[in-house]
């Protein structure tokens, strides 16, 4: 094996390594993003369930107001319940979507880790091969 060939091989490996690393970091970033999103959804869900709980305790004649901007607008209790229930359903859907995405990203991360380890091994081998050629 000529030293030029070894060097070329090393360079292509280096490029692939770099590319793979970038991909890996990108996946990690995405993962973090969805984790944060999930936490937010979780908080919203618990807040909405608490509100639903409170609305459930009220008598049907109770006055319920909704804050729209700076004003309080009177709202029907049933309507309010429906609204909150709709929100809870939506958040639950979003949570499921996030869970799916997170699972996917986890798998992707593992794949990237594996290919990275492989590439690193090849790169080291190439480096050793080059050193051998050079020392001759």
């Amino acid at each position: 094996m000529s030293s030029v060939h070894a060097m070329q091989q090393k360079e292509t490996l280096q490029k692939r390594l770099q590319h793979e690393l970038e991909q890996y970091q990108k996946t990690q970033k995405d993962y973090q993003k969805y984790i944060n999103g999930r936490q937010q959804l979780d908080a919203q869900l618990s807040e909405n369930t608490l509100v639903m709980d409170e609305l459930g305790r009220l008598e049907t004649a109770a006055n319920v107001y909704k804050m729209i901007g700076p004003v309080l607008v009177k709202q029907d209790l049933d309507e309010a319940k429906q609204n909150v229930q709709k929100r809870i359903d939506y958040i639950n859907g979003e949570l499921k979507r996030h869970d799916g995405l997170l699972q996917n990203l986890e798998k992707k991360q593992d794949e990237h880790k594996e290919t990275l380890a492989n590439l690193q091994k090849h790169y080291q081998q190439a480096q050793q091969a080059q050193a051998k050629v050079n020392s001759r």
């Binding site: 909405n48 609305l55 006055n63 909704k66 309010a80």
Partner: peptide, 21 residues
Amino acid sequence: ILIDIGTGYYVEMPVESGKDY
């Protein structure tokens, strides 16, 4: 009294229920 029960909803209730809340 008027109580903020969260997510922008306010409920009017008697004082005793407010204390209970």
